[in-house]
Design a protein around this nucleic acid. Structure first.
Lengths: 337, 337
DNA sequence: TTGTAAGCGTTATCAC
DNA sequence: GTGATAACGCTTACAA
């Protein structure tokens, strides 16, 4: 049975209040008292019960990071940075996986989930804009959106400029001299905003270069996993004329797409140049290495945590938008012939 | 301000006890009462406070999964399965990252970390056997070890037979006709038990085949990341005679090693055959695809969660050892010429 | 500077 | 079957 404040107080012959003062670092405690208390704490191996403290203070010291799939490299790399950033602010991170389950997302946001042991949510959503809009209005749970962009200032969010990022990626392929530029990653339901924005950037870059937008060259991807990229690329390669470049909305899609190109007996970048988004470590070792749009996840993580902490401390603070920098990293998958 | 049991009781004109009964699904409640209570709950949008409940019951409904690095694919894929398995048992998962920090591991295990908001720990350790032995003895926190094997029945653990797995992997390379078989992944401090066991399996397979164990062919890896595999492989390739096969203690090491082989102007598997351990998804898409020892992570996750739940329910239950099956999956990186 | 006591929102032990 | 009421372990007015 773990020792309590009361036990320590009894042993040290002081009041429970004094023990609490010592434990929580209150200043005005005489040295003799502090000495006695610390000794008793040592002796009993006392540790404060965080749950009791939480019940009293209303703070758990935990953040929830909600992602669709933790084993998607982008999310696990983001999680790593978020855990690190949260530690700097004295918070710990609980990771929740929604598994593309909108219902689960709604539960978390509305608090329909009855086990909310955290102070705030970092949310990398799957939900549509409309869904999200009236979701969190019921709960007062502090919320910061990751990766999304277009929410009219209702929520804190930290994201990249998706339109520009997609535009830059497409532009890079154009500068290579490619003209039949396909894209993988549009979502069947067009209400997901990230894919929508990337499509917008892709199309605008094509138009600016005077290249007609060819609907057949745009393939959806139900999720953003390797298998989805593989399937989509296979379909693209069977077209006539076949694309000479593919812009993938995520690096993982790109990994699958590259494999599909090889399996078709073609080569990257000679036959098909490929670019992704995310800059996951895998792309720095793959063959060929993957050209990508790098996202500065540490930046995203840091600002997201900073925002949520600010909102926890003051729920009334105005919502803020943070745009993380991005940058095209040219590697072998788009190297010039 | 969220509604409490008391508010509901007042509105429904019943006692707080009756409300609690309804909420926690107690059977002996009259229909009229239940009706009234449910109505009030609905009206107030009442949700039980999990912290208060926890303080009373001592259960948080949370498990901690402790891993060195969440962005290492093996761990993120394991995390995914653990989260899924935990959900089946009604638990949620908090992921903690120790970042190769022994001190952090000790903190978590001894509860020196003051925020123990979970009921049990699933621990994929970095610590040495000796360290672990007297670590958890102070706390009574339920603990299940993942991936480790040789702890004399003091702790629950679910793992694979590391010696056999390494033996099988090495044997596979031998059966290919390779004779200069290197290994990457031994740890500088030999007290880590998993690497130790893999080295044991590697060496025994060589000896059985009458192949001398060549110390130069064994390279340590500080961590198990791509960069470590890359560096180790580079060193191996500069040897004379150079190895014609490499057994990597993890798939990620293998990905780095493959890249090093290509950068040296050699090919896999013709010049150097490569096999890993873990069966991460990346290896199913890489070029060449990676031969590996598959670990059945869902099995590991399920049994680990089942054990920890059993131990939470009855702390006195005898420690158990679960050995997960493993299997060599032959792919292109060791295909016959 | 330190002690006393009132909660935080539950669950559980009594009675009735 | 339902109603009071005492914990759970802590923080924090309010007193002394």
């Amino acid at each position: 049975m773990p020792a309590t404040l009361r036990d320590v107080a009894d042993l040290a012959q002081v009041s429970i209040r004094t023990v609490s003062n010592v434990v929580s670092g209150y200043e005005h405690v005489s040295d003799r008292m502090r000495e006695r208390v610390l000794h008793a704490i040592e002796q009993l191996d006392y540790r404060p019960n965080p749950v009791a403290r939480t019940l009293r203070t209303g703070r758990t010291g935990m953040l929830a990071l909600v992602v669709p799939e933790i084993d998607v490299p982008y999310f696990s790399e983001l999680a790593r940075d978020v855990i690190t950033a949260a530690a700097d602010f004295g918070y710990r991170v609980m990771i929740d996986q929604t598994g593309h389950d909108h219902e689960r997302e709604r539960e978390l946001l509305t608090g329909g989930d009855r086990t909310m042991l955290f102070d705030g949510i970092l949310f990398s959503p799957l939900v549509t804009k409309a869904e999200l809009l009236d979701m969190n209005s019921r709960t007062s749970m502090p919320l910061v959106l990751l990766g999304e962009h277009d929410f009219d200032g209702r929520y804190d969010h930290v994201a990249i400029d998706n339109v520009r990022a997609a535009h830059d990626a497409t532009r890079h392929l154009i500068d290579l001299g490619r003209t039949r530029i396909a894209a993988i990653g549009a979502q069947p339901q067009e209400s997901y905003s990230t894919p929508q924005q990337r499509t917008e950037g892709y199309e605008s870059a094509l138009r600016e270069a005077g290249i007609p937008v060819e609907p057949d060259y745009q393939r959806p991807a139900p999720h953003y996993r390797r298998a989805d990229g593989y399937d989509a690329a296979r379909a693209l390669l069977s077209l006539d004329p076949r694309p000479d470049a593919i812009f993938c909305y995520s690096d993982l899609l790109a990994m699958g797409a590259m494999r599909a190109v090889f399996d078709a007996g073609l080569s990257v970048p000679e036959d098909v140049a490929i670019i992704g988004i995310d800059d996951i470590e895998e792309g720095r070792y793959s063959r060929p290495t993957l050209t990508t749009v790098s996202l500065d996840t540490p930046f995203i993580a840091h600002h997201a945590v900073a925002r949520i902490v600010a909102r926890i401390d003051d729920p009334e603070v105005a919502a803020e938008e943070v745009i993380a920098p991005h940058q095209v990293l040219v590697r072998e998958s788009t190297a010039r012939g």
